[in-house]
Deep mutational scan, measured.
Amino acid sequence: MTYKLILNGKTLKGETTTEAVDAATAEKVFKQYANDNGVDGEWTYDDATKTFTVTE
């Protein structure tokens, strides 16, 4: 399945996607991606759209 991440960081905004077997796996990938890019904030997940959002 394809999962999407929306980044609403103070210095980085954008979107990315990943292929993962489940939401938990996608979340690990996205949290590492956000961490690597210096984005740390509040996370939400919408199962209907398979979209994670992180907002600083």
Rank of each mutant, 00 (worst) to 15 (best):
T55D: 07
T2H: 08
D22N: 09
Y45R: 02
T18K: 04
D40T: 15
T44H: 13
V21E: 13
G41A: 02
T18E: 03
E19W: 14
F30K: 00
V54Q: 01
T25N: 08
A23P: 12
T2I: 15
A20S: 06
L5S: 00
M1Q: 14
A24Q: 12
D22Q: 03
M1W: 13
G38M: 07
F52K: 00
E56N: 06
E42I: 14
T55K: 06
K50M: 12
L7I: 15
L7M: 12
G41Y: 03
G9A: 07
Y3V: 02
D40W: 15
N37K: 14
N37S: 10
A23E: 07
F30Y: 02
D22Y: 04
V21K: 12
F52A: 00
F30C: 02
N35H: 14
T49P: 02
T18R: 05
D46F: 04
G9D: 03
E27H: 10
Q32P: 02
N8L: 14
N35R: 15
M1R: 10
G41N: 02
N37R: 14
Q32M: 08
K50G: 05
E42P: 04
D47T: 09
D40Q: 14
K10L: 14
G14N: 09
K10W: 10
N35D: 08
T17I: 10
I6V: 09
T44L: 08
K4I: 14
M1S: 15
A48M: 12
Y3R: 01
A34R: 01
K10G: 07
K28R: 13
E42M: 12
D22M: 03
A20M: 03
T17C: 09
A23D: 06
D22I: 03
G41R: 01
M1E: 13
G41M: 03
V21L: 13
N8T: 07
W43P: 00
K28T: 10
L12Y: 15
E15R: 08
F52G: 00
V21Q: 12
A20G: 04
D46K: 03
E56M: 07
K10D: 07
E56R: 04
W43V: 02
K13V: 12
M1N: 14
A20T: 05
T51Y: 03
V39S: 03
M1I: 14
L7S: 03
T55E: 07
K50F: 10
L7F: 10
A23F: 13
L12P: 04
A26M: 01
A24N: 08
K50V: 03
K31I: 08
W43R: 00
L12Q: 12
T44M: 12
V29I: 13
D22A: 04
K31N: 04
E19V: 15
A24G: 09
L12T: 10
N37F: 15
A34F: 03
A23S: 12
G9E: 03
L5K: 00
A20Q: 07
F30L: 05
Y33I: 07
K13G: 05
K50Q: 10
T51R: 04
A26W: 01
Y45N: 00
L12A: 08
E19K: 13
V21I: 13
G9K: 04
L5Q: 00
K13Y: 11
V39D: 01
Q32L: 09
L7C: 08
A20I: 02
E15Y: 14
G38F: 07
K31G: 03
T16K: 11
N35V: 13
T51A: 04
T55H: 07
N35T: 14
A48L: 14
T55N: 09
V54I: 10
D40I: 14
T55W: 09
K13P: 05
T2E: 11
A23C: 12
E27M: 15
E15Q: 11
T44S: 13
G14I: 14
L12G: 08
G38L: 07
G9P: 03
Y33M: 05
F52V: 01
K10F: 11
E27P: 00
K50L: 12
D46T: 05
L5P: 01
T16Y: 15
K10S: 11
